[in-house]
């Protein structure tokens, strides 16, 4: 089945790219691999007929957020090569072990839960979900929708204020 081949291809690439985000020593490469991961995930969303989320994922995440990341990386001119924490050389095994514990225990619950659900088939979504999404967003989820705007306003104000260059005028106005 070509769909499942495509799915597994995306699966493997996403996983590999995610690993490379952590393993690559150059921050720019990390960012590029992060974009790749996001694109793969968008592909997986598409396979689940979540076209809208896929589009948002590509446009907002890969398109906007990651550009911001790259921009800051360039701005700060981070030439120094990323090395792993020196202190963690010896502790790395423990970190991996802890993460494995997390992965295994949560993953095991997924296996156990889903084994009981073998017979459940995903119901069909209406073919054209985007109007429904829009309607739901502005009715049922009106409050979170508004809150998101507040959140973004805060982020903008805060980012602008914190990252702002200190002008000489500022000292005079607060004294």
């Amino acid at each position: 089945m070509p769909v499942s081949i495509l799915y597994y291809a995306l699966f493997v690439i996403a996983l590999g790219a995610a690993l490379m985000v952590v393993l690559s020593r150059n921050t720019v490469y990390s960012a590029a691999f992060l974009i790749l991961t996001m694109l793969c995930l968008a592909g997986i969303f598409l396979l689940m007929h979540q076209e809208f989320v896929a589009a948002i994922q590509v446009i907002v995440y890969a398109g906007a957020i990651m550009v911001l990341f790259l921009f800051v990386i360039m701005l700060l001119n981070l030439r120094e090569r990323e090395i792993l924490l020196p202190d963690f050389r010896s502790l790395r095994i423990w970190v991996v072990l802890l993460v494995l514990v997390f992965f295994v225990q949560v993953g095991a619950t997924c296996f156990i839960v889903l084994r009981q659900m073998r017979d459940v088939y995903p119901p069909e979504l209406p073919p054209d979900t985007i109007p429904l999404i829009a309607k739901t967003l502005l009715t049922k989820y009106l409050l979170p929708f508004e809150l998101v705007s507040v959140l973004l306003v805060i982020a903008i104000i805060g980012a602008a204020m914190i990252a702002r260059h200190d002008e000489p005028a500022e000292h005079s106005d607060s004294s």
């Binding site: 970190v95 802890l98 993460v99 514990v101 997390f102 225990q105 949560v106």
Partner: peptide, 9 residues
């Protein structure tokens, strides 16, 4: 992470 693992476990 230790704390989170502990809670979930």
């Amino acid at each position: 992470l230790i704390g989170i693992n502990l809670i979930v476990l």
